[in-house]
């Protein structure tokens, strides 16, 4: 009997092998970082290889006739794979950021219920994070609930924001790495001129370094790049210069960065990248110390290569 191709099995093989390659390619070119944090690298490679293996192993059945088909179930795997390919080609990074900050500001993973009141909530979290970071007595959290963003000065984001409950937790993210930070060598430090130029790559390290060793760096002139972010408690002439920290995956982004004091805040656009230069000061919010930049200069900047930062 003449051999004929079984298209059902062929589809099965192709989808499995392609899916496997998509996962591996995503890891190799680094675009998986748009969705998950770097710790998933090995897992994704294993999964990709398994899929390729499965596809290869089915090859021998391509010449075998079969009646009932499973196209639908292969299509099931095609869904996540298409989703992996499409947004990446069609959506620019900027629109992605537009989505996340500040309209969708997820909180630190330790954050839970929306607060009934800022105080009680931050007290609770203070306790929680305190128990997690026993070494750090002055662990601080900055938590706000947003109901109205009318002072932000950007009509478009205002309308999107107003109905949403947003919170941000700027510094508790930094706690984890503090132990090792005391003697970290970070670039951009000029002790003589008392200047710190924070590079894109070291954004997160510097934020936690400045926060944890505030005493050393107080009064330094810090130059840092991030997005302008405002919400309920950071409004008026204050804003925060933030980057989105991906704790685990895109489902838990946290805006992270220092508060800035600037009299021309109203002229800055939300969700736009700025390089802010200011003097490091502090401020006490809800009984907790926060680092703050007293802004001297603001320049519009281009987005960094990697849109997100990965604290863990």
């Amino acid at each position: 009997m003449k051999k004929q191709v079984n298209y059902d099995v062929l589809t099965e093989c192709i989808i499995a092998i392609l899916s496997g390659f998509i996962l591996i390619i995503k890891v190799v070119n680094g675009s998986y970082l748009d969705y998950v944090s770097p710790k998933f690298k090995i897992l994704l490679i294993i999964a990709g290889s398994l899929l390729v293996g499965i596809g290869m192993s089915r090859m021998h059945s391509v010449w075998k006739n079969s009646y009932n088909s499973h196209y639908k179930r292969y299509l099931l795997l095609a869904i996540p794979m298409l989703m992996l390919i499409i947004p990446h080609n069609s959506i620019a990074a900027s629109s992605l950021k537009n989505n996340y900050s500040p309209t969708q500001v997820n909180v630190n993973k330790k954050e839970k219920k929306p607060s009934d009141g800022v105080n009680s909530d931050s007290d609770k979290r203070q306790k929680q994070s305190g128990s997690r970071n026993k070494s750090n007595a002055d662990n601080s959290s900055f938590d706000t609930s947003q109901k109205d963003n009318s002072t932000a000065g950007n009509p478009k984001t205002d309308s999107i924001d107003s109905a949403k409950q947003n919170k941000t937790d700027f510094s508790s993210l930094g706690n984890k790495s503090q132990a090792s930070d005391g003697n970290t060598q970070l670039s951009g430090l000029d002790t003589q001129a008392k200047k710190i130029t924070v590079s894109d790559k070291e954004f997160y390290q510097w934020i936690s370094e400045l926060y944890n060793n505030y005493a050393i760096y107080a009064g330094y002139e810090v130059s840092i790049k991030g997005m302008k972010y405002q919400d309920d408690s950071i409004s008026g002439d204050k804003f925060a210069i933030v980057r989105l920290a991906m704790v685990c995956c895109a489902a838990d982004m946290v805006p992270c960065g220092p508060i800035c004091q600037y009299d021309k805040t109203g002229s800055l656009k939300n969700n736009t990248w700025y390089t802010v230069t200011g003097v490091l000061e502090n401020e006490t919010v809800g009984g907790q110390m926060q680092i703050k930049l007293n802004v001297k200069k603001v320049e519009e900047a281009t987005a960094p290569d990697e849109p997100y930062i990965y604290p863990y």
Partner: peptide, 25 residues
């Protein structure tokens, strides 16, 4: 229209990308 479809896509993709390796293994 303020309908965060793109964000929904990305969150879902992220969840799937995280879950699929574990499921496969």
């Amino acid at each position: 229209g303020g309908f965060h479809f793109n964000q929904w896509m990305i969150v879902l993709t992220a969840i799937l990308l995280e879950g699929i390796p574990f499921l496969l293994i």
